[in-house]
Design a protein around this nucleic acid. Structure first.
Length: 891
DNA sequence: TCAGGGACTTGACAATAACCCT
DNA sequence: AGGGTTATTGTCAAGTCCCTGA
C-alpha cells in the first residue's frame, strides 16, 4: 500500500558521503539540514567540507575513523566525498523517462511504525543516518555551507536507509547458507596464503576499532551457529584476532596450496584436459601469483610475439614511481607489491593453452510462412532467419521504435532483394512465425525433467572443452567461449543502429591468441579456418573478432572473473582506490582552491573533479554520432545542469546505458558560481566544460596521484562508504540484523553510483498481495485482543468471522499469540518496505565492481556473519583473492 | 595534440535455475 | 505438482583509459 512509494525517493540525496557530520549522534541532524530546495526536490545538503584540513599529505592513518569524531570536516581524514545527495536519481524506473523533476519525492519514509522499531534497534542507534529517510540523507549533504572557499563539507549523513531492509532475504539466507558454508571455508583457506593478506592489511592501522570490537561473544553463541566460514579462523581471532589469525591460517593453507598447484602445473601444461579441474580456484590464485613473480623480472622485454601493442596495465606501477609524494609512498608501495602479478608490466602469462571458441549451431529453417498483405510468403532460409529474429521480438519495446524497424527493414531488404514481393514492413505480418516460436517455447517447457536434463548434459559435454584454459599451468575458466550468435542489434536508449542485423561470425574472422608452444585449436567448422593465430602474452584475451555492427570495435574472449588474471587486476584496482584515501584530502583542497581560478581550464578541471568526487559521475568520454547520445561529467551539456539559487544544481541527463541521472545537489557557492559562468552565453547542446575532455582531466589527476583517473573516485567512494557504514552501523544483534546493515550499506552505494533496474512487471501486484496479507493478519490481531480482554474477565472468546466457536485459551496463551502475530506483521511490513525500496535499485553491480571484497570479508569475520550470506558462489570464486584478509582490514 | 586503435571494466537485462506457496 | 517468484548466471552493449603514430 501506501507505503510503497516512499522509498527512495529520496533519492535525493543519498547522502553518501557522510562526511563528517555523521557523527554519531547525528542522527537527526540531518533533518535539520534538509533544506530542500524549493521544489522540494531534494534537499541536499551536504555538509561536508572538504578541504579543510588537508592534512598534509595523506597519511593514511586517519582514514577510517569515521566515527563520530570526525565531525569536522577537516580533520578528518575521512573525508569522504561528499557526495551528498545525489544519488539518487532515481529516476524513474524506466529509465527512459525523463522526468524532469527530481524526483525525489517526498519521501517519507514511511514505514509503519512497528517496523521501524525493530530495526531501529539495530541501527538506529547508531548514528543517525540510518534512520533517516533517504531523502533526508540526501539532503544532508549539503555542506556547502561553506561558503566560499573551500570547505568541503562533510557529508551528511548518511544514509538513511530505511530500516526496514531486512527483507526476507534473510530468511533465505539462513537456509542456504549452510550448504555453502563449506565452500567458504575452503576458500578462506586457500587464499590465505600469506601473500596477500599480510601485505595489505596492515595498512590499516587505523582500524583498531574493529579489532576491539571483537566479537561480542555474545552474539555468536546464540544464534548462529554457523560456524561456517569463519570458523577456522575464529578461534584465533579471539585471542588477538588480528595477528594470529592471519598468520596462522595463511601458512597452512599456503603451503598446501602451493603444493597442489605445482603439481597441477606440471600436468597441465601440455594438454588441457581435465587435469586439474580439481584445483580450487583459490589455490590457483596463489599459485599463479607465485609463478608470476618469477616472471616479473622480465618486464617489458617480453614483447610478445605478436605485433600488438604493448602493454598497458603495467602502467600503474610505473606511474607510481614517478609519483611524488614521498610520504604516501609507503602505502603505495605496499599496495603495489601485493600484486605479484602486476609486477611485470606487460607480460600477462607465460604459457597459455585453450581450445578456441564454439560457434552457434547453423540456422534450422522452420518453414512457417509469414504473411504479406495477408498472403503467405515463401522465404529462403536466410531470409526466414532474419524475419524470425524480428518476429520473436514482438513484445519488446523495440517494436515501438521507428529506428529499430527502419534499420531492420534496410538490412532485411538487402536479403530479400529489390524485386521481392515484400516491399515494405508495414504490410508484413510476422504473427505466424511468432506463434510458432511461442509453441516451440511451450514445447520445450513441457519436456520432462529427464529430457531436459539429458539435453543439458549433452550441451555441457559439447562445451566442456571450450570452457577451460590452462594459464601458466593452472586450469582457469574461460568467460565467454561462445561466439555471439546472429541477431538484431539491441542497442540501448536511442541507439542509431538498433535493429540492424548482427550477422553470423565465421571462423575466418576470428583471431586466436595462444601460447607459442600450445597446439592451435582445431577450427570447429569443417573446411574453414581461423583468421590468424597470435602468441601475444601481453594481453589476456584468448580470441577476438570485429564487431559486425561497428567493425572498428572488437569482441574479445577473456578468462572468467574467477581467474587469477582477473583477480589480480581486481585487487590492483582496489589498492589504487585505497591509495586515493591518502591523497583525497589534498586533492579536495586543491580543487576547492581552483574553484575560483582565473585559468578557465583549471577552473573547469576543479569543478569537474568535484562533481566526479561528490556525485560519483563517470568521466564522460566523447562519443561518435553512431552511438546513443549519453553523457558523463566531461561531456555534460549546458542543459544538463540547472542552477537553482542560492546554490543548488539540478542534474538531469542520460548516462551510461541511457540510464537517467537526476539529482539536485547543494554545492559550495564557488562551484555554483563557476557553473553559472561556464553556462554563460552557451546554447543548449553545447559542452558545459568546453575546455575539458577525459584525457586532460585524467592527465591532471595523474599529477595528483600516480595512476589516478576519474573512475578511481567511484571505486573509492563506493568502498569507503561501505566500510564506514558497516563499521558505524553494525551493532549487535543476530546475523540477520547484521545482514540488514550490510544491505543498507550496499543500497547506499548503489544509490551513489546510480545503479538502477527496471521495476518488475509484477511489482505492484506483489505489493498489493502483501498488503492484503497484512490486513488479514491485522484482523486476526484485533480478534485476539478482544478475546484477551474477554478472557481476562473470564468470558469465552468471541465467535470467529465464520461463526465458529474458538478454542478457549488462557490469557497467557493469547498474549503469546498476539506477540507472534505482531512479529509476523512487522516482518511483512519490513519486507514490503524493503521491496519497495529496492524496486529500482540494483545492488549487484556495486557488489561485483565497486566494493572491495576485503571489506566484506573482514566484516563478516569480525561479526561472525557467514560470508556466503553476502556473496553467492560466483562472487566467492571471483573474490577468492580476498578471502584471507585479516579481520581488522579496513578499506 | 589529436585521432583512432586496442584492451579491458562496467552495466542492465534476459535466460535459467532454485525456491516457495498453495 | 504446478505456477509464480526470486536468485544466479549468462549475454553482450557501453563505458573507461591507454598507447601509438602522425
Amino acid at each position: 500500500m501506501a507505503t510503497m512509494s516512499d522509498d527512495f525517493d529520496e533519492e535525493d540525496g543519498p547522502a553518501f558521503f557522510r562526511r563528517k557530520n555523521t557523527s554519531s549522534n547525528g542522527q537527526n541532524h540531518k533533518l535539520s539540514s534538509d533544506v530542500r530546495s524549493s521544489n522540494g526536490q531534494n534537499p541536499s545538503a551536504h555538509k561536508g567540507n572538504l578541504e579543510s584540513s588537508t592534512k598534509g599529505l595523506p597519511t593514511k592513518s586517519p582514514v577510517a575513523i569515521p566515527k563520530p569524531s570526525t565531525s569536522n570536516a577537516k580533520t578528518a581524514p575521512l573525508s569522504l566525498p561528499v557526495k551528498s545527495l545525489s544519488s539518487s536519481t532515481k529516476t524513474s524506473p524506466l529509465r527512459s523517462t525523463v522526468k524532469p523533476s527530481n524526483s525525489k519525492p517526498p519521501s517519507g519514509r514511511s514505514m509503519p511504525g512497528a517496523v521501524k522499531e525493530e530495526n531501529k534497534e539495530n541501527y538506529d542507534s547508531e548514528d543517525s543516518e540510518d534512520n533517516k529517510p533517504l531523502s533526508v540523507r540526501l539532503k544532508g549533504n549539503s555542506n556547502h555551507v561553506n561558503k566560499g572557499v573551500s570547505t568541503p563539507t562533510p557529508d551528511g549523513s548518511d544514509d538513511e536507509v530505511p530500516l526496514s531492509f531486512r527483507k526476507k532475504s534473510i530468511k533465505k539466507d539462513s537456509e542456504v547458507s549452510d550448504d555453502e558454508v563449506l565452500l567458504s571455508s575452503k576458500l578462506s583457506f586457500n587464499c590465505s596464503a600469506g601473500t596477500s593478506g599480510s601485505k595489505y592489511d596492515d595498512s590499516d592501522d587505523k582500524k583498531p576499532l574493529a579489532s576491539k570490537i571483537q566479537k561480542d561473544g555474545s552474539s555468536k553463541s546464540g544464534k548462529q551457529e554457523r560456524p561456517s566460514t569463519l570458523p577456522l579462523k575464529r578461534p584465533l581471532e579471539k585471542v588477538n584476532s588480528s595477528n594470529q589469525s592471519s598468520v596462522k591460517k595463511t601458512k597452512t593453507t599456503d603451503s598446501s596450496i602451493l603444493m597442489k598447484t605445482e603439481q597441477v602445473a606440471l600436468k597441465a601444461e601440455p594438454k588441457l584436459e581435465d587435469d586439474d579441474d580439481n584445483v580450487p580456484i583459490s589455490q590457483r590464485l596463489k599459485k599463479s601469483a607465485a609463478s608470476e613473480n618469477k616472471s616479473v623480472p622480465v618486464k617489458k622485454k617480453i614483447t610478445k610475439a605478436t605485433p600488438t601493442r604493448k602493454v598497458g596495465s603495467g602502467s600503474f606501477k610505473k606511474q607510481i614511481i614517478k609519483s611524488k609524494k614521498a610520504g604516501n609512498d609507503s602505502e603505495y608501495s605496499k599496495s603495489t607489491k601485493l600484486s605479484p602479478s602486476s609486477g611485470d608490466g606487460q607480460k600477462k602469462w607465460t604459457t597459455l593453452v585453450h581450445n578456441g571458441v564454439i560457434f552457434p549451431p547453423p540456422y534450422q529453417p522452420h518453414g512457417v510462412n509469414m504473411l504479406y498483405k495477408g498472403k503467405p510468403v515463401d522465404l529462403t532460409p536466410e531470409q526466414e532467419e532474419v524475419a524470425t529474429m524480428f518476429a520473436v521480438m514482438k513484445d519488446t519495446d523495440y517494436m515501438e521504435k521507428t529506428m529499430f524497424k527502419e534499420n531492420f527493414w534496410n538490412d532485411w531488404r538487402k536479403l530479400l532483394g529489390r524485386n521481392h514481393v515484400i516491399q515494405g514492413l508495414e504490410d508484413c505480418n510476422f504473427t505466424p512465425i511468432y506463434d510458432w516460436y511461442q509453441k516451440e517455447k511451450e514445447h520445450k517447457k513441457q519436456m520432462s525433467t529427464e529430457e531436459k536434463k539429458a539435453l543439458k548434459e549433452e550441451k555441457a559435454k559439447q562445451e566442456d572443452k571450450y570452457m577451460w584454459a590452462i594459464v601458466d599451468g593452472v586450469k582457469e575458466k574461460v568467460g565467454n567461449f561462445r561466439v555471439e550468435p546472429p541477431g538484431l542489434f539491441r542497442g540501448r536508449g536511442e541507439h542509431p543502429k538498433m535493429g540492424k542485423l548482427k550477422r553470423r561470425i565465421r571462423p575466418s574472422e576470428i583471431t586466436i591468441n595462444i601460447g607459442k608452444d600450445a597446439p592451435v585449436p582445431e577450427c570447429p567448422i569443417p573446411g574453414e579456418s581461423w583468421k590468424e593465430i597470435r602468441n601475444d602474452n601481453t594481453v589476456t584475451w584468448l580470441a577476438f573478432w570485429n564487431d559486425p555492427i561497428n567493425p572498428k570495435l572488437f569482441k574479445y574472449v577473456f578468462l572468467a572473473a574467477s581467474s587469477s588474471l582477473k583477480g589480480q587486476s581486481d585487487k590492483e584496482k582496489y589498492e589504487k582506490a585505497r591509495m586515493l584515501k591518502d591523497y583525497i584530502e589534498n586533492i579536495r583542497a586543491a580543487y576547492t582552491k581552483d574553484f575560483t581560478s582565473k585559468d578557465i581550464t583549471k577552473q573547469q578541471i576543479a569543478v569537474a573533479t568535484y562533481l566526479i568526487d561528490k556525485l560519483a559521475l563517470r568521466a564522460g568520454n566523447e562519443k561518435d554520432d553512431d552511438e546513443a547520445d549519453t553523457v558523463g561529467c566531461c561531456t555534460l551539456k549546458v542543459e544538463n545542469v540547472k542552477p537553482v539559487a542560492p546554490n543548488t544544481l539540478e542534474f538531469s541527463f542520460l548516462g551510461k546505458d541511457s540510464i537517467k541521472y537526476e539529482n539536485a545537489v547543494e554545492v559550495e557557492l564557488p562551484v555554483y558560481n563557476a557553473i553559472l559562468k561556464f553556462q554563460k552565453g552557451k546554447r543548449p547542446g553545447v559542452d558545459l566544460f568546453d575546455k575539458l575532455d577525459t584525457s586532460k582531466l585524467n592527465a591532471h589527476l595523474k599529477e595528483l596521484m600516480p595512476g589516478l583517473t576519474a573512475k578511481v573516485f567511484r571505486t573509492y567512494n563506493a568502498s569507503i562508504t561501505l566500510d564506514e557504514m558497516l563499521n558505524r552501523e553494525t551493532k549487535g544483534g543476530d546475523v540477520a540484523d547484521k545482514i540488514v546493515v550490510y544491505q543498507i550499506a550496499n543500497k547506499q552505494v548503489a544509490i551513489i553510483c546510480n545503479h538502477q533496474r527496471t521495476v518488475s512487471k509484477s511489482h505492484s501486484a506483489q505489493m498489493s498481495r502483501l498488503t492484503e496479507k497484512i490486513d488479514d493478519l491485522e484482523g486476526v490481531l484485533k480478534e485476539l485482543k478482544t478475546d484477551l480482554d474477554r478472557a481476562k474477565k473470564g468470558k469465552p472468546p468471541s465467535k470467529s468471522a465464520d461463526g465458529k466457536k474458538k478454542k478457549i485459551l488462557t490469557p497467557e496463551a493469547l498474549e503469546k499469540k498476539i506477540a507472534q502475530t505482531n512479529a509476523k506483521i512487522e516482518k511483512m511490513q519490513r519486507d514490503m518496505k524493503t521491496k519497495e525500496d529496492l524496486k529500482t535499485v540494483a545492488l549487484g553491480t556495486s557488489k561485483i565492481n565497486y566494493l572491495d571484497p576485503r571489506i566484506t570479508v573482514a566484516w563478516c569475520k569480525r561479526h561472525e556473519v557467514p560470508i556466503e550470506k553476502i556473496f553467492n558462489k560466483s562472487l566467492l570464486a571471483k573474490f577468492a583473492w580476498a578471502m584471507d584478509v585479516d579481520p581488522d582490514f579496513r578499506f
